[in-house]
Amino acid sequence: MRRLKEKDEAALLVLMEQYGDELLRTAYLLVKDHQTAEEAVQDTFVQAYRSIGQLQDPSRLRSWLMRIVINCCRTRMRTWSWRKVLPWAWVEQLAEDQGRYAAPEEQLVESWGRERLSVAIRSLDYMYREVIVLYYYQEMSVLEIAAHTGCKENTVKARLARGRLRLRKIWEREEEADV
């Protein structure tokens, strides 16, 4: 923290290495576009580097970065872009399997399941996608999500419940289509 406050770029690189993947995964699930997610994370680190003096409690660094990336994603979701006009036909897999399984078949099934879940989450409205990602992927409590999003706790709980219900319906439709 001291080195960051002294504007040491090497400390920024350490920060990026430590939190970059987690922030990118969160941003990708929120904005549904890999390039936009990368831009949001990049903006997050730039903003954090410039504003590191505002962080009062160094133990809240992860939470502070998460709030910045959420706000960057919200801004990008509100901003008009050519990406809304030009179609794209890609499905990107963000997290590569680290070889946890020995059998290629198991790797394929695991990868396919993650991709289906990722696609289902990305198909949710932003307000549901945001709380689902923060709750399940970032393991934040309802209280923490409320603080990060500026919503009331009951609103977060309602969005989680509705988001789960929508995910279940999406999953059931896909299973019916597979039959």
Rank of each mutant, 00 (worst) to 15 (best):
Y101D: 12
Q35T: 11
A89P: 01
K84V: 04
L61W: 01
A27M: 07
C73S: 05
W64Q: 09
A89W: 05
R166K: 15
K7F: 08
V69Y: 02
R129S: 10
R78T: 06
E175R: 15
D125F: 09
A120Y: 03
T149P: 00
R114M: 05
V14N: 11
R100I: 09
Y136T: 04
G53M: 08
G53V: 12
L12C: 09
Q93V: 15
E9F: 06
E96N: 11
S51W: 02
W64I: 12
V31W: 06
R74A: 00
P58L: 08
A147H: 04
P104H: 04
R67D: 02
Y136R: 12
A102Y: 13
V46C: 03
E6M: 11
A158S: 06
T36V: 15
V119H: 07
W64N: 06
E153M: 10
G113P: 00
M127L: 13
R162A: 07
R159I: 11
G53E: 14
R60A: 15
V85C: 01
H34C: 00
Y19K: 10
V69E: 05
L4S: 02
L167G: 03
S51N: 13
V91E: 11
A158K: 12
G163Q: 07
A40M: 04
D178W: 15
R162T: 14
W171Q: 13
R76G: 00
W82K: 14
R166G: 00
V156I: 11
H148F: 11
Q54I: 02
L165Y: 09
L23Y: 05
E105M: 07
L4T: 03
Y49K: 08
V46A: 09
A11N: 09
S63P: 00
V85E: 01
L143I: 14
V179R: 14
R60I: 08
T44Y: 10
L124R: 06
H148V: 15
R50P: 00
R60P: 00
L117W: 03
